[in-house]
Design a binder for these strands. Structure first.
Lengths: 155, 155
DNA sequence: CGATATTATATCGTACACGATATTATCGCG
DNA sequence: CGCGATAATATCGTGTACGATATAATATCG
């Protein structure tokens, strides 16, 4: 390992690895979210599921999983917890009994109003301008899509 | 919700949230890593611990946790698995019996050589140039540090 | 129309990940 | 020296996460 090896590409030092930056930023987001979600009684993944349902109510488990990149083995227990909290209902679709429709409750709609302040808190915690924040969002989303594409079609 | 609400700042749509981009990119990295680590018998977090030890052997649990932002409740079982795999040894420091020194085995050093190709695979999977890749790494690391700072000193 | 394939969820086993707490070792101060 | 405070690791309970598999409903094709 010579002094300028770091210049020629990624190495095995966590601090130089993009995957570690993403991994640790994910944990850091969870940590910032924790007190904000405490009042709502939600975890961060539960909040993401609620956010997906606020965009479109009445999705089935598969649609939510597709949007959030999660499997039914993760979502089924999580949705049962949201149901126990009184934020969603889970019902088999009468037209196709294989599917489970997830619907928001009245409480969930109240929750949405309380959550509207959260994105601003996150932006503030990032110390970034809105412009840089959204640009980074797009770059990371593009990276994610390229990685998923590569994982699905291994070289 | 009007058509240009997206222009005035972050909202509650997962696809517009930086936290979701990071969250899903983290999962995507795991997915790309899985086949690469399969041969080595490691999970992604285990690989990160190995990488931290390749930078500096003989660290104690706390030092590893500080570098990777992980608690002893996560690391202790993980390190026991790495020990069972024959990649590390765990020994109480004779000078301070509270600390557990984690040392690499001979196998771990062979593993390092086999791992040197991995960062290049990740870069290729990202579809990015090395320059952009490293720039994104720095931006995400900066974001993480700002979030951790904010979590530690809430506004 | 009925056997087979496919699809949608659910369940199970393993592995993170954290907060709260327990345990043991060291330190500091009288 | 001894005793309370502090520090390092481990343990426990809860909640993700995934791959493999199970189960049940629908679709397909002869």
């Amino acid at each position: 390992m010579t002094a300028n090896d770091a210049d020629i590409g990624p190495d095995l030092t966590p601090d130089n690895m993009l995957c570690f930056a993403i991994y640790s930023a994910n944990h850091a987001f969870s940590r910032v979210y924790k007190p904000l979600l405490k009042d709502l009684g939600l975890t961060f993944p539960q909040f993401l599921v609620m956010a997906a349902l606020w965009v479109e109510d009445g999705q089935n488990v598969g649609a939510i999983g597709e949007k959030l990149c999660l499997e039914s083995s993760t979502l089924t227990p999580l949705l049962k917890r949201l149901e126990a909290l009184g934020y969603v209902t889970r019902n088999r679709d009468p037209d196709d009994e294989r599917q489970v429709r997830v619907n928001l409750t009245v409480d969930a709609k109240k929750l949405r109003k309380k959550s509207l302040a959260i994105p601003g808190c996150l932006l503030a915690a990032s110390g970034m301008t809105g412009k840089d924040y959204m640009a980074l969002q797009r770059n990371v989303a593009r990276l994610r899509d390229a990685l998923l594409e590569s994982a699905a079609n291994p070289p």
